[in-house]
Amino acid sequence: MNIRGYRLTIIGVYAVNDDSPTASKDTFFQQLNDEIIKTGKTREIFLLGDLNSRTGKSDNDVTIGKYGEDTLINNGERLIDMCKQNNLRILNGFYQHRNIHKYTWIQGTKKLRSIIDYVITKQKTKLQIQDVRVYRGAICGSDHHLLKAKIFLPYKREK
Rank of each mutant, 00 (worst) to 15 (best):
T104W: 03
L8M: 10
W105T: 00
I139K: 15
Q30A: 15
I100M: 08
G93F: 00
I115P: 01
T22E: 15
N52K: 06
Q123P: 04
D19A: 14
Q130K: 15
N2M: 11
R43Q: 09
K148V: 15
G108I: 00
I73V: 12
D117F: 01
T63C: 13
I73Y: 04
S20M: 11
W105S: 01
D70W: 06
S53G: 06
T63I: 10
K57D: 02
A23G: 05
D19G: 09
Q85S: 08
F152S: 12
D61S: 10
A15Q: 04
D34T: 14
N33T: 11
W105M: 04
D34S: 13
V119A: 08
D117M: 02
L91D: 00
R43E: 07
N52T: 01
N75T: 03
D131P: 05
V16S: 06
R43C: 09
K150T: 10
R89M: 14
I80Y: 01
T109I: 05
I90A: 01
E69Q: 15
L48G: 03
T121F: 05
N2D: 14
T71M: 09
Y6G: 06
K84G: 04
G68T: 07
L146K: 04
T63Y: 02
N17A: 14
N86V: 08
R4C: 14
G141H: 11
D117G: 03
H144T: 01
N87W: 03
N99D: 15
L48D: 01
S142G: 05
R89Q: 15
K111S: 05
G76V: 02
T109C: 06
T39V: 10
L147M: 06
K159V: 05
G137Y: 11
I90Y: 00
L47P: 00
P21G: 08
K25A: 12
I80P: 00
G68K: 05
E158P: 02
V16P: 05
G12P: 05
K148C: 14
K148L: 14
I139S: 14
N75Q: 05
N86E: 10
N75D: 06
K38A: 15
G76H: 01
Q30F: 13
C140Y: 11
A23P: 00
V62N: 12
W105K: 04
I120Q: 03
A23C: 05
V134Y: 04
V119T: 07
M82C: 10
T125H: 08
I37W: 09
G56V: 03
E77V: 04
K124L: 13
G68Y: 05
T22L: 14
R78T: 02
H101S: 08
R136D: 10
K159D: 07
D131F: 08
N33V: 02
M1K: 10
I116H: 00
G40L: 07
T71P: 00
R136E: 14
K57G: 02
L51P: 02
I80A: 02
G137W: 08
T104Q: 07
G76L: 01
I64P: 00
T63P: 02
